[in-house]
Every structure is written in structure tokens, then in C-alpha cells.
Write a protein that binds this DNA or RNA. Structure first.
Length: 494
RNA sequence: GUCUCCCUCGUCUAGUGGUUAGGACAUCGGGUUUUCAUCCCGACAACGCGGGUUCGAUCCCCGCGGGAGAUGCCA
């Protein structure tokens, strides 16, 4: 499979790009790159009911954010365009009519109501036969003319043989065979609005665009034989198939919204980095050797192979994604992190938009202490809240560390404040101050944290915070003093 | 109901006709640390079941069980 590999990602713009879809895109993209082939983007916007401009924009912006560039497709063009199916409208009718003329397809005038009724009855009677009853399979010319005269818009159905069986080869799965009678009976290939269904559009375009390998989710396996039948009806070569394992939610069902966010856009908004998404998502259902886990996009463009694709469906693990994201955040350089973090602080109203020079400096200075603690970029908001909004802790018990008590805490606070402020003001080193504070704890007969905790709570309004001296540095001595005094006052009342 | 596919720790996976069945996430425990986090160390944890083939099966074959997907004028 060296020469001219051509693969495509062909999403339907009927919703936001989600993990499963993007995983398919990634596999196709990496496979193309690794084999020196072309990655083609094709927009399958044949469902006019569910189509939305927003979905289309989301498709473009998501791929751009991930850094996935298509060699041919919308916007960039290519020799086999247009790459948006609605712009190829007339084409599909021609091919469908060709099949009708050859007797391989036929007009159907059944109403949706009738079809629904048929389906309902089949389900209720637990009939072995499911699907269209071929009601219009043998209409006479005059019947057809009469229906058309009445203005009924027909669909075109593909005539599926009732005898024999059809086999297609899947690179991963091997040969998959279905008896023709088990294939969905005479599926619609051209809808009454003149748009093709997936089956027709997909086959026609894959052929016309010279697609060599079809990598798509396993949910398409059942229609594999149908597509082969279609290729045969047209007299075309069948491309190579490779059905990808599906991405599941925790409960083992196909991943969907009810499992949590699945839209890539949502992950982006929460503060996941594109390299983390790419790395983790391609590891769902694929592996190189079972032990390597960090892959850059560039590496995957070289080392991705079909052999590494797993057969079984894989559960998407949000926690592992978090872990990857944390790893990538820690690897990221500080300047980049600063700019990535800024929008979150602006959104929280913590810094101005547009950003001022002072805020910029502040952000630069908080990056180092915050980067070890973030799983997602939006974590920066709770982590730095104490700098931007002051919500003093009124509950004394919060200040009291385990193993300490109110009296010792009051002492620690009073004398600790003294040590801290004089130390800071006289330019003592943090180590020196720290030593004095820990000496104080010994003197009081409590653990080190018995001294640090009340000070921390006073300054950061929380028992959990950035390192104390980092916090002070970011907050400034003046504000630090104010907060310490306030806490001291709290413990002196009553 | 029918058809098709799938089956190694909780999860993602590596792997072999003879291995202490490997790694990672998660979980738990410990260490470093002023808290949290990071980081380091350690522990727990899997070949779905039953037959066969074989000197020997997680691995090969068959059956069962379980799971998933498809069954649309959605893709």
C-alpha cells in the first residue's frame, strides 16, 4: 500500500465534532501521512433536516485547532471537487437514474406513514423479516407515470438481490460475509428531495475521488456488503476497508453526550491542550508497542500503522485524558501557558480585556506556581481566586490545624505575623523566615503546619493554596499585612 | 426478533504453544513538601466459561455466555 494512498474523513455537519469523529479523522490523517498519501476532507451534508452552519464551522475550527490540515477538500479545493456534497447535487441523481435505467434500482412512492406502519407491524409480530416490503419493486410504467402525474415525489431504491451472499474484506476483521437476504431490503439511495442518502453519496464520491482506503467506525460494518453491491452495480473497484473500533462510554455504550462532554469544542473550552487530545484520542483503539505513551502529532505522522489498531471497542477514560493534559501543561513553556491562561482569568473577571501591562506581568509571575497544579487550564481560576477576590474565612476552626488548638493558633498567628512581616520588610530570605516559623512551632509544641495553616488561611482564604511564599509574593506585602491583621483580630475578639 | 462484529487487571493496552502474563491511568499505601498538587517508591488487580487438539494451552479449534453495532427518505 505504498503508492498513492488516498483516505478521507467524511463527517456530516449535523452536530459538533466529537471524540469519536475526531478519532476517525486522526486515524485517517495519520495513516495518510505515514504512507505519503493524501488526506481528503469531504462534507456529507445530505441531511438537510439536521444540517447546521454552526456544525460546519465547528468542523473547520476543530480541525484547525488540532492542526489537522487536509490536502483536498473544502476551502483548499483539489482535483476532484467540489468536496461538499450539496454542491454535487446533480451528480447523484444521474448515477441513481443510471441504476434505474439498468433495472438495478427503482422508484418508490410509499409514504413515510406507510413505511412506519410496516415497520411497526414487523416489530410487533417479531417477524423474522425486517425492513421495506418491496411494495414498489415491480410497478409498471403506467403506474409510475400515474403517480408522477399526481405529483408524488418518489425516492429511488436500490434493488438488493434476495439470493446469494456478499463478502467484503476488512483489513482488520478479515472477510465479512452476509447473505443478501439479510441486507437491508432495497434501501433508499436517493431521497424524495433529490439528495442522495449516505450509501449512494459515499460510494459515488469515494469512487470519483479515488479513495483507496476507507477507514470508518465499526458501526458501518453491517452496510459493508450493501456498499460492495453498489460498487458492483456501477462496475467499479471496491476500495480497501478498515473498520475502526468504536469509542464507548463508561457503561459500554457508544460514547454520547450522556457520558459527559464529547464535543471537542467543550474540551477546548475547559482547557485541554490539542496535543493532549491528539495523544490520548489516538491511543483509544490504537497502540504502537504497548508501552510508549507519549506521541507528538509529528511522531504519529510517521509511526502510525494499521496493524496497531485494536479490534475491540474501547472505553473513553476521561481521567486518563486529564492525566495526559496535566503532563502536557507541565511540559508547556511558561510564555505559552501565560497566554493560554489569560482568557480564563478574563472570563472570571479577574483581569481586564484587553489585558493591561500590569496584569500581564502578574500572569507571567503566577504561571510557575500554578502550572504544577493544573489538570485543565480553567483550574487557574480557583487556584488564583485569592489574588483577585477577597473572601475572608470567618470560621475560626478552619485556621486550626490538626493537633493544634485555638490558643496555640492565636499565638501562632500573632507571633507568626510578626516574624513574617518584619522578615519580609527587612528583606530576609524565605528560608530564614521559614526556619523561624518552624522554630516557633517547636516552641509552641505543635507541628509545623500548626503555624503555617493559620497563616495560609489568613492570606489565601483557604487551607489549600499555592506555596505560601509564592502567594505572598503575588499578593504583595501590603495586602498580605492587611489580611494577617484581620485574622489576628478575629482571634482576639471574645 | 434477525444479522454482523467483539472478549487480557476497574479502564486503555503489550504479549507468548512452556513468561513471576509486561506497561499506563485509576485506586490504595509510603516518601519528599508549610497545605494542595507535582515528583519518587510500593501494593492491589486480568487471560469470561466449558469442551477438545497437545507432553503442555491465555494463545489453535468448537460450543456456550456476555457485550456492542446494524436493522431509517440519519450519517
Amino acid at each position: 500500500m505504498k503508492m498513492d494512498v488516498r483516505v478521507r474523513y467524511a463527517p456530516s455537519p449535523t452536530g459538533l465534532q466529537h471524540i469519536g469523529g475526531i478519532r476517525t479523522a486522526l486515524f485517517n490523517y495519520f495513516f495518510a501521512k505515514a504512507n505519503g498519501g493524501k488526506f481528503i476532507l469531504r462534507v456529507e451534508d445530505t441531511d438537510r433536516e439536521r444540517y447546521s452552519d454552526e456544525s460546519l464551522e465547528d468542523l473547520y475550527s476543530t480541525l484547525e485547532w488540532l492542526g489537522i490540515k487536509w490536502d483536498e477538500g473544502p476551502v483548499v479545493g483539489g482535483p476532484y471537487g467540489p468536496y461538499i456534497q450539496s454542491e454535487r447535487f446533480d451528480l447523484y441523481r444521474e448515477y441513481a437514474e443510471q441504476l434505474v435505467a439498468e433495472g438495478k434500482a427503482y422508484y418508490c412512492f410509499c409514504t413515510p406513514e406507510r413505511l412506519e406502519e410496516v415497520r411497526k407491524q414487523q416489530a410487533e409480530s417479531k417477524s423474522e423479516y425486517q425492513g421495506y416490503d418491496r411494495h414498489c419493486a415491480h410497478l409498471s410504467d403506467s403506474e409510475i407515470k400515474e403517480y408522477l402525474r399526481q405529483g408524488i415525489k418518489p425516492v429511488i431504491r436500490f434493488r438488493v438481490p434476495t439470493e446469494g451472499k456478499t463478502t467484503f474484506h476488512d483489513i482488520l476483521m478479515g472477510d465479512i460475509t452476509r447473505r443478501n437476504r439479510d441486507i437491508s431490503p432495497d434501501p433508499v439511495i436517493l431521497k424524495s428531495d433529490g439528495f442522495p442518502t449516505y450509501h449512494l453519496a459515499n460510494v459515488v464520491d469515494d469512487h470519483l475521488m479515488k479513495i483507496t482506503h476507507i477507514m470508518r467506525a465499526q458501526e458501518w460494518i453491517p452496510s459493508g456488503p450493501l456498499h460492495v453491491l453498489l460498487y458492483q452495480a456501477f462496475g467499479w473497484d471496491v476500495p480497501q476497508y478498515c473498520h475502526l473500533p468504536m469509542v464507548m462510554g463508561k457503561d459500554g455504550q457508544k460514547l454520547s453526550k450522556r457520558h459527559g462532554s464529547t464535543a471537542v469544542r467543550d474540551f477546548r473550552a475547559k482547557g485541554y491542550l490539542p496535543e493532549a487530545i491528539i495523544n490520548y484520542v489516538t491511543l483509544v483503539g490504537w497502540s504502537l508497542d504497548g508501552s510508549t505513551e507519549f506521541f507528538s502529532k509529528e511522531e504519529l505522522e510517521k509511526c502510525f500503522t494499521m496493524e496497531g489498531i485494536h479490534k475491540a471497542p474501547a472505553v473513553f477514560d476521561y481521567k486518563k485524558l486529564d492525566w495526559f493534559n496535566g503532563q502536557y501543561i507541565r511540559q508547556a513553556d511558561n510564555a505559552r501557558l501565560a497566554s493560554l491562561i489569560t482568557p480564563y482569568l478574563q472570563q472570571a473577571g479577574y483581569v481586564s480585556d484587553p489585558i493591561t501591562e500590569d496584569d500581564k506581568k502578574l500572569i507571567d509571575s503566577l504561571v510557575p506556581s500554578v502550572k504544577e497544579r493544573m489538570k485543565v487550564l480553567s483550574d487557574v481560576v480557583p487556584l488564583t481566586a485569592f489574588l483577585f477576590e477577597d473572601k475572608p474565612v470567618e470560621d475560626k476552626t478552619i485556621y486550626i490545624a490538626k493537633g493544634s488548638d485555638e490558643q496555640n493558633t492565636a499565638q501562632a498567628l500573632e507571633r507568626g505575623t510578626e516574624i513574617l512581616l518584619t522578615g519580609l520588610k527587612s528583606g530576609e530570605s524565605e528560608e530564614a523566615i521559614e526556619e523561624k516559623l518552624s522554630a516557633l512551632s517547636q516552641e509552641l509544641g505543635i507541628k509545623v503546619n500548626g503555624v503555617f495553616q493559620p497563616i495560609r488561611v489568613a492570606i489565601t482564604n483557604s487551607t489549600v493554596s499555592l506555596p505560601l511564599f509564592d502567594s505572598i509574593r503575588l499578593l504583595g506585602i501590603e495586602e498580605t499585612e492587611k489580611r494577617l491583621m484581620r485574622a489576628n483580630k478575629l482571634f482576639k475578639e471574645n
